[in-house]
Design a protein around this nucleic acid. Structure first.
Length: 487
RNA sequence: GCCCCCAUAGUCUAGAGGCCAAGGACGUCAGCCUUUCAAGCUGAAAACAGGGAUUCGAAUUCCCUUGGGGGCACCA
């Protein structure tokens, strides 16, 4: 009987989670759910110096937003905790000591300055940088001398001086490394915290992780991990190194690529289901044509076998398209619920709060098929809320002369004043014939009215817009337009 | 500099020797629809990095070159 699938997402709180991090989380989650296994979140907070305030919250919040629920980890606990590495220091220290005792690791007293100098020298000589193993064979006497000086040592792994380390990646296949290219890396830092290599290997073992799905950038560290598993006599999990998500310049995603923090996308009004769909297709595919795929389908069909090997650029244009598709798919009520908060925060402060839900309900259908993100809603609908329209007078006479515009607006005013009911079809019933009476093309006439009532040349369908605005507002605005034209 | 990974259109991808004179999607362009903007519908342009080798036959296998990426910290 195969061991149950247990996978983990192991972020370090050294920054806000970007889409690359979250894509890794998504693949782990999908694999866990597909395999009816467990999805674990473990916080790798072993770098005290680079710790970023709020990062853990942002990471967990991103997962919540995308509904990537975890079975063990922060907030939920579990039988393999604690799930914060900073709370497991005793374990790492004991294991590091054990490695020293069994001869697989040693104490190193070299100062950071010496190491830096050494590396600089190596670079200058065009040699591969790496620890020169000065402390690897320290005599007892020398060690005592250094201890007395009060130097706190680090613990380094004794990497084999020869031979090769090979392993099999689920995505890459066989990979072989020559041990001579490896140096004696640090396991335990002088501040008593473990390095990633130690903590990661120890925890994956202790937490009985079955598959490690992590970004490609870790592939180069694989031989160290394999060597560590061997030294500790642990059975290594299976590894799958995922292709990376790259910035537009094809380099590793970083702050300099702008809004890549996952929560930024929430703020901009992308739907989580669109983000999940989009991210899933960055490095994974179902077949030769599926673009739109639900979370349920993803869970059902996700497979390690269909993960690509090539790094992928995050294509915002395609995300935008997909976002629009998802927004249009929402039913009216759902759309209203989702767009409301964005209007509350996005519309000018001068507008009374809270917004009238009933009014927004009328507006919502007019923009649902036009916006790409919920964040665009405010700008699209602002003219529905403001008292005074602010627009360039010239817009009223781009297609017609001032005289014609005045005549047409007066006629329109008169026409809608006497309307029995102010709805879409009655508006069309009176305004369309009016256009021909005035001898104006509908495009010109309606365009003029559009500017007068909305202050812009591009807006939702005119009659629907006017119906929602209501008779009073429309008359006021037409009046205002007449004034602008000096009528 | 050394090590590792990767290589189909601008971008995301399908393709596991003949089904490929390479399929889908975004984007782009054109047309249709239309009161504007979107949406929708039609259509078009656009790719197997290069060179060898294996084979009756290669986008698919192997080698080299080139290109891109990642790694080489008391960071993860």
């Amino acid at each position: 009987m195969r061991k149950p699938v247990r996978v983990r997402f192991a972020p370090s709180p050294t920054g806000l989670p970007h889409v690359g991090n979250i894509r890794t989380a998504l693949f782990n989650w999908l694999f866990a759910r597909h395999s009816k296994g467990r999805f674990i979140v473990r916080i790798e907070d072993t770098d005290v110096a680079r710790w970023v305030k709020g990062a853990i919250e942002a990471i967990l919040e991103s997962l919540h937003w995308l509904e990537l629920d975890w079975d063990e980890g922060p907030e939920v606990g579990g039988d393999y905790g604690p799930y914060f590495q900073s709370q497991r220091l005793d374990i790492y220290r004991a294991i590091a000591q054990q490695l020293v005792k069994q001869g697989d690791a040693y104490l190193c007293y070299c100062s950071p300055q010496r190491l830096e100098q050494m590396r600089a020298e190596q670079m200058r000589r065009k040699e591969p940088p790496g620890y020169d193993r000065r402390c690897r064979n320290l005599s007892a006497k020398e060690r005592v001398r250094l201890e007395i000086q009060g130097i706190v040592p680090v613990i380094r792994f004794k990497t084999p001086l020869s031979g090769e380390t090979r392993f099999r990646d689920l995505i890459r296949g066989r990979v072989v490394f020559d041990n001579r290219n490896l140096d004696d890396f640090v396991l335990l830092k002088s501040d008593g915290y473990p390095t990633y290599h130690l903590a990661n290997v120890v925890d994956d073992h202790l937490m009985e992780i079955s598959h490690v799905l992590r970004a490609d950038e870790w592939l180069a560290s694989i031989p160290r991990h394999v060597l560590l598993y061997k030294a500790l006599d642990y059975k290594p999990p299976l590894f799958a190194h995922l292709p990376m998500i790259l910035g537009p310049d094809r380099s590793k995603l970083s702050k300099r690529h702008g809004a890549v923090s996952t929560l930024d996308y929430r703020e901009q009004g992308y739907l989580p289901e669109a983000i999940v769909n989009f991210l899933a297709l960055l490095g994974w595919s179902l077949d030769d044509r599926t673009e739109l795929i639900s979370r349920e389908q993803l869970v059902r069909y996700f497979s390690l076998k269909r993960i690509a090997k090539t790094g992928a650029i995050f294509n915002i244009d395609k995300l935008n398209w997909m976002s629009g598709v998802y927004i249009r798919q929402l039913d009216a009520e759902d759309f209203l619920e989702r767009v409301l908060p964005f209007l509350e925060t996005g519309l000018p402060q001068s507008i009374e709060r809270p917004l009238s839900r009933e009014y927004v309900q009328q507006i919502a259908p007019l923009i649902q098929e036009r916006i790409t993100t919920l964040g665009e809603a405010a700008e699209y609908t602002e003219f529905f809320f403001v008292e005074e329209l602010d627009y360039d007078r010239a817009l009223l006479s781009t297609d017609v002369t001032d005289e014609v515009a005045l005549e047409a607006l007066r006629a329109a005013k008169k026409g809608i004043q006497d309307l029995d009911s102010f709805d879409t079809s009655s508006l069309e019933g009176v305004l369309r014939p009016l256009a021909s009476e005035l001898g104006l093309k509908t495009g010109k006439f309606f365009g003029l009215l559009r500017v007068a009532t909305t202050g812009r040349t591009a807006a939702p369908s005119l009659f629907q817009t006017m119906a929602v605005l209501g008779r009073e507002r429309c008359l006021q605005r037409i009046e205002a337009a007449l004034n602008r034209l000096g009528g």
